[in-house]
Each structure stands twice: as structure tokens, then as C-alpha cells.
Amino acid sequence: MARRRQIYEGKAKILYEGPEPGTLIQYFKDDATAFNAQKKGTISGKGVLNNRISEHVFTLLGNIGVPTHFLRRLNMREQLIRQVEIVPIEVIVRNVAAGSMSKRLGIEEGTQLPRTIIEYCLKDDALGDPLVTDEHILCFGWAAQEELHDIADLAIRVNDFLSGLFAGVGIKLVDFKLEFGRIWDNDFSRIILADEISPDNCRLWDMASGEKLDKDRFRRDLGGEVEAYQEVARRLGLLPEGADSAVLDLEVHRKRRGK
């Protein structure tokens, strides 16, 4: 597919004009950032792996009735997605205390929470994506009450499904970030899941060893980022044993040649 006009570039993805009205092409980069882009680097092959993992997860979520922006994967780094109006709120779903929650509240990392917690952050890099409450969201019109209910309901459904999916392959879903968008039909809109779900925006720990299989390996200078992402893909059945992300590239090229 010919490259279209660039619409937006973020930390990990680029959005291009889609082939049809109401669609975009989402390109996954190898760029890695942490701490509001104060730390920058590259994880070779990350974009390929995240594209495939996110496709897999979004497809499964769609199969259980979760509305998403995902339409189909185009190649090793690109997806065709619905164009949405992004709600300017990051939704953090937490099952285990980790990261900023542990630092803010003095709770030991790894502490199982008695119940799942949903937090909201304003999407604003210049402000450091500050935590906000339901009251802030409603007061400043970032989302309506009904939309906020839909967002919370969908976040819990996604959490329930993903927790089971990852537990089935020996991975604990510690926490993760979601983004949502509006799809408009004349004067009416509905909320759907957008962005991606991958080791970039999920904390994933091996259930037996506690080994981190996510972007914390980059954040905390642990090394082995590529291997961790590959391990997640491998356990989900997306990467053969002993293979690396180059296998995904070859798979895509074979399909495009019709072999």
C-alpha cells in the first residue's frame, strides 16, 4: 500500500492517512521512551513485535464484543484502524502495586491489590500526564458522564479478559494503560478502545520467577528488552520457539507474495 500523508507522530507510533475515509494507517516504531520522553532509545524489532501482539489482543477482544479501532494488520509494522476522536485521558488499570503507584503511596512493589484500581491521567506531555479524578474529567468536559461509565466498564472487561489470557501462558498482568476514542454517527458518538496493547503499555511479570517482560526493562536499565518482548510473543503463540522477530518479517513477506 502506498504511503499516505502523515497525520500525527507520537513516541511509539506514526499515524498516516488511510486508504478510505474514516481510516488511518498506524505504524509501529522501534523508538522507546520513558519518564515522559526524558529517556530515549531504540529497541530493535519492537515495532514488529508490538504490531503483532496488539493485533492478536485486539482481535481477541473484538471476538468477545469489545469495540476497538482495529481493522486489520497490513504488514509487519502497520495496521489499518478506524479514525477516532481520542479522549484526552489515559486510563491506568492496576491489579498489583508497581511503578508510580508504589512511589506515590509507599506501597511495596509487587503487593497484590485487594481490588482492581482504575486511575486517570490527563494526556499532556508538557504537564507530565498528571493524575486526575472523575470530577476533573467531568468539570473540564474531557468526557461526559455516560462516556466515563462506558470507559470504566470497558476497562474492567479488558482487564478481566487479559488477566486470564496472560495467566494462561504463565504471565501476571500487573497493570496497563488504555486509551479510548469516539466514533461519530451524525450527532451521536460511542466509545471504543484505541491505541495499542503490548509490552510497551502493560507491566507483565513471569508468574514463576517475577521476571519483567515489558518496557520496565528499558526504564530501569535491566537489559534484555528484545528478548522480553519476544518471550511474550512466543508464549502467546505468535513467535516459534527459537525464532526472533525477523521470523515475523519473513512470514509477512511470504503472505504478500502469495506463497
Rank of each mutant, 00 (worst) to 15 (best):
L15F: 14
I92W: 03
A97M: 03
L238T: 12
G128V: 02
N51P: 00
V66W: 04
Q26W: 06
L193V: 04
E9P: 02
Q145K: 13
C139S: 15
D185K: 08
R52Q: 08
D185L: 11
A246K: 12
R157W: 10
V158L: 05
I118S: 03
Q145S: 11
D153Q: 14
A12H: 12
L236A: 04
E227Y: 04
E78A: 08
R82N: 05
D125E: 15
G45S: 06
D31I: 12
K11Y: 08
V91A: 09
E20R: 15
C121Y: 10
E108I: 02
L74C: 06
A144F: 09
G181A: 05
I192A: 02
E211P: 00
P19G: 13
F58A: 01
N75Q: 04
R219A: 02
V66Y: 05
F70L: 06
V158S: 10
A34R: 14
G22D: 05
G128C: 01
L131P: 06
S100N: 04
E251S: 07
L113I: 01
V91F: 03
D195S: 01
G128L: 01
L213Y: 11
V93I: 14
N95L: 13
A126I: 09
S209N: 09
L131R: 13
T111I: 00
L238K: 08
L162D: 07
R115D: 07
R115A: 13
K172L: 09
F28G: 07
L80C: 00
D30H: 15
I118Y: 02
L213W: 14
K177P: 11
R115W: 06
E251N: 03
P114F: 02
F161V: 06
L113Q: 00
D185T: 14
L113K: 01
V84S: 00
K103Y: 01
P21A: 12
F180I: 09
H136F: 14
Y229T: 10
T68M: 01
L131M: 08
H149C: 09
L113N: 01
A155I: 10
R4Q: 13
I192T: 04
E225P: 02
F35W: 13
H136V: 12
R5Y: 03
G62E: 05
K259P: 00
G47R: 04
K46Y: 07
R3A: 11
V57T: 11
L131V: 07
L80D: 01
R256K: 14
L49P: 07
G237N: 08
I14T: 15
F188K: 13
R157K: 15
E231A: 11
P67R: 01
C139R: 13
L250W: 05
L165G: 08
L238Q: 10
I25E: 12
F218E: 02
V169I: 15
D200M: 11
R254N: 07
L204A: 06
T23D: 04
L236M: 10
E179M: 08
F180H: 06
D206N: 15
D249Q: 09
Y16T: 08
A97N: 04
A208W: 00
I92T: 03
V66I: 15
C202N: 12
E55T: 14
V93H: 09
A126G: 02
K11H: 09
N75I: 04
K39E: 10
G164A: 07
T133C: 06
F35S: 08
L60A: 14
H149V: 15
A152N: 15
W184K: 11
L162E: 10
D187R: 13
L236K: 08
C121H: 14
Q230F: 09
L239I: 07
